[in-house]
Design a protein around this nucleic acid. Structure first.
Length: 236
DNA sequence: TACCAGGTCCTCG
DNA sequence: CGAGGACATGGT
């Protein structure tokens, strides 16, 4: 078994299934049947934008507010005044930028897919990826999150946690594409595995492999990590 | 008080 | 290319 697979196995054994992406307000561990509806697909697309460089808690509060006000739909966001939308998603931070981005994507779906998000998400993976990246406000991580979690395509998502963890373990890849290829080349092309793996990396990055003072003592990757080993050696 | 959090865009060398 | 700044709230 290669090193990447060993990392996955160690994380999965330690943490168990994560149940990403949170849909309908909660996680669904071990249940890969989401999203079940276009409404839920859009919830993931919007969530991916709202979560940009922000804690999930803050993004989730914005999603909750949109749901409460019945604005968590393509049609509602496309026609709502940007300023009004911005006020509703205030908790997610960068609310003016994000309101603009949400409207751009919603309008794109209205103008090109009759407002049906499922039509957009049904396109072939690479074509869809390019189309998403062409929209202002959707970069590689957001595009790949949409591909993996909303469209359920086998695309590995790279985020800040993944970068930090892989760098500490000892990998020298640094660009988005390099890291993505590292994972995709060493794993079966499986949407479920990519889904769980990314979620597990986030779990590790949030609670153990933190930016400052990582808890290497309790890290399931300690035997596989160059940083962890040197830290533990010094501790003695 | 600072720093961090499930990025992206723009500008400048 | 890569570095640096702007965008902004809520938790510790």
């Amino acid at each position: 078994m290669n090193r990447i697979k060993r990392i996955y196995k160690a994380l999965h054994s330690s943490f168990g299934p994560q149940g990403w992406w949170p849909v309908a307000g909660r996680y669904h561990p071990g249940d890969y049947s989401y999203p079940k509806t276009p409404q839920q697909q859009w919830e993931i697309v919007a969530g991916a934008i709202l979560a940009q460089n922000t804690s999930w808690k803050n993004a989730a509060a914005a999603i909750g507010e949109l749901r409460r006000k019945r604005k968590l739909t393509v049609a509602a966001m496309a026609k709502m005044p940007q300023q009004k939308l911005a006020a509703m998603i205030r908790s997610s931070g960068y609310y003016n930028e994000k309101a603009k981005k949400l409207k751009i994507v919603a309008k794109h779906v209205i103008d090109n897919y009759d407002g049906k998000i499922q039509r957009l998400l049904k396109k072939r993976t690479q074509q869809l990826r390019k189309e998403l990246l062409s929209l202002h406000g959707i970069g590689p991580e957001t595009a790949d999150s949409i591909l993996l979690y909303a469209a359920r395509k086998p695309v590995f998502v790279i985020d800040a946690y993944t970068r930090r963890i892989m760098q500490r373990i000892g990998y020298d890849q640094h660009s988005y594409e390099e890291l993505q290829q590292l994972f995709e080349r060493n794993l079966s092309r499986s949407e479920k595995i990519y889904n769980e793996f990314h979620a597990l990396l986030v779990e590790l990055g949030k609670n153990t492999c933190t930016k400052n003072n990582p808890e290497c003592r309790n890290c399931p990757l300690l035997p596989l990590c160059s940083h962890g080993k040197s830290v533990m050696k010094q501790k003695v």
